[in-house]
Design a protein around this nucleic acid. Structure first.
Lengths: 344, 344
DNA sequence: TTGTACGCGTTATCAT
DNA sequence: ATGATAACGCGTACAA
């Protein structure tokens, strides 16, 4: 466990000054004689010298690092998002510090403080919905913030990358209505989030188009956290006039919802037609395969990273951007036309 | 975007010296008058002061940060592992920098360099199997390395946390043999890894116990990377004398294997009894639910983190440790007794 | 108990 | 084209 060489070691070993070595490492910062350049490079290689990022950070004031703040990595949606972001970030030479909130505002606040201490250049997050002032402060301190998938309505001036929520929900709902279903359950995210509201809006729009009125009981806005999805499923199916279709539009609750469906022995699509918002690989191996709104996760990743990096390099106009990517509806066999024989 | 206050700002605002402020922040480093302490704390709060971690790191030489190097986060196993590690790390006040290798040695080497530059105190990894000398160098430079799930045989002196691989495979195989199956396909990891070898060993042990000979064709050691699992499934099932049971013991290949099974329309367990090594939530919603070897992922996380942190604090003996945790076999309905009627 | 001064490794600003 | 030197913000002997 010998200690690593510093730039000074390299300099003296090469018989030059530290400035030269520094310029060899950061070519854009100044010229250096080609001959010397190669020889310094040789010494660097030989000594196995590597610049310490902490020193650089202290000197330049920031880090080519982005913080990623998601609910939890156990959820395939966030896991895949994280995967793509980490992957994409690497190709840009930036590291990713991952923090999870478990949808707990308290933990989220904590994470933000930590990221601030590390002077990350930017943060990509799926916000819990709270900590409005904290996010604002983060921005005012020069940290570039980009929200993915959801955003906080109260918070203006923050970039957002999401799918076309209204349209996706409209599409899914429209499909079910076209199959003849008139009572369609909707499990959405909290109305306090843009995502939750937009998807409900799409659901309503489709109903209007088909001139079908909505039973408010069928709309369940459940929190991202906890087992709200499963509970909503149970409660929807115990309704006197139970729905014949179900749309799970809360990404964080897809797992718990489907699991409950299976536990209850609900026959799909005979008892219930189902569509979920998820790009999970496993939706294809359930029986029957589930119809889904396929979230273009890598698009979300690419755009959000592009936004943070763009802002870090100051190559973007001041005005906050909103990027909406299309999400495809993928019909599979979990939806069937409504038969005249009512469920029981 | 005003610039953040430094420790000096706090000191002058509080009318004390920087060292007092420093001691207030790091109590164990020295005493400070209670009265002054509170007032300094007040000023800190008021100014919103937060120490810059880069400066501290430069000063003390290391960081309370661990690197996590896994194949990819799109695989539920790694995702959950990452989730638990990030979670556990937070409670110890350490951050996690996540890097993915996609099972590519080149990318892995890259990651290690980067982590070295950041002077992380430790690294938790599921190694690709290559980069032997690089891992060794990392250690010699004082970075504490802990492998999880797999290890590299050539590399001594590395801590390892894994499940009881031999026993798990033995258990699963034994179960199938007890059901009367005599031709059981095994999809394992590469024999160049400890995991791959151990699981094959367990498979063999069970056969010996039942005095059943093994057809070498039934054992497929496929790489972690790529779609080897799916291909192995296809090839196993197209054998003249095809197996009636299948054990997928390569965690990274469970997804592709099961997907292929579904694509091929294989009836489980009528055509094939199946057991997979995975703790994936989705194994319960497939039809039928899959029998699994349940990997105690959070145990893996807890132990590996405990090991790195323990080493970072020098609170552990020099000698490398190997922690093996038990994995339960969870029988579900994907396995059935072998009927006398052969497949077709 | 408190304050001073230096070191950590790198980049940036100057002269040369 | 090159070299000396001052930041950068914090920890910490050491002196008071």
């Amino acid at each position: 466990m010998k200690k690593a060489p510093t730039i000074r070691d390299v300099a003296s070993a090469a018989g030059v000054s530290v400035s030269v070595v520094s310029r060899v490492l950061n070519p854009e910062s100044g010229p250096v004689a080609p001959a010397k350049r190669d020889m310094v490079l040789g010494v660097i290689e030989e000594l196995g010298y590597r610049p310490r990022s902490a020193a650089r950070e202290l000197s330049v004031g920031h880090t080519p690092t982005v913080g990623l703040v998601v609910a939890d990595l156990a959820n395939p949606f966030f896991a895949q998002l994280a995967d793509r972001i980490v992957w994409e970030a690497r190709s840009h030479g930036v590291q990713v510090v991952v923090m999870t909130t478990q949808e707990d505002p308290h933990l989220e606040a904590d994470s933000l403080d930590t990221l601030l201490d590390r002077s990350v250049g930017g943060v990509i997050a799926t916000p819990t919905g709270a900590n409005v002032e904290k996010w604002a402060r983060l921005q005012s301190l020069g940290v570039n913030v980009v929200f993915v998938d959801r955003t906080i309505p109260d918070l203006a001036n923050v970039d957002l990358v999401s799918i076309e929520n209204v349209d996706s929900a409209r599409q899914a709902t429209d499909y079910m209505l076209s199959l003849g279903h008139t009572r369609i359950g909707l499990i959405s995210g909290p109305v306090s989030t843009s995502t939750g509201r937009a998807r409900i809006q799409g659901y309503q729009a489709a109903h209007e188009k088909h001139s079908i009125s909505i039973d408010p009981q069928l709309i369940r806005d459940v929190p991202f956290r906890g087992d709200g999805g499963g509970d909503a499923v149970g409660s929807l199916l115990s309704l006197a006039n139970r729905p014949t279709g179900l749309i799970v539009a809360n990404t964080a609750q897809v797992q718990s919802s489907v699991r409950r469906l299976v536990q209850m022995g609900v026959r799909i699509p005979e008892d219930l037609s189902v569509i979920v918002f998820d790009d999970n690989p496993w939706t294809e191996v359930t029986s029957p395969p589930l119809s889904v709104i396929r979230q273009p996760i890598s698009m979300l990743a690419v755009h959000s990273l592009e936004l943070v990096l763009g802002r870090m390099n100051g190559k973007l106009p001041e005005t906050p951007r909103t990027v909406e990517v299309k999400a495809d509806f993928v019909p599979r066999s979990s939806c069937a036309p409504l038969l005249l024989t009512p469920t029981r």
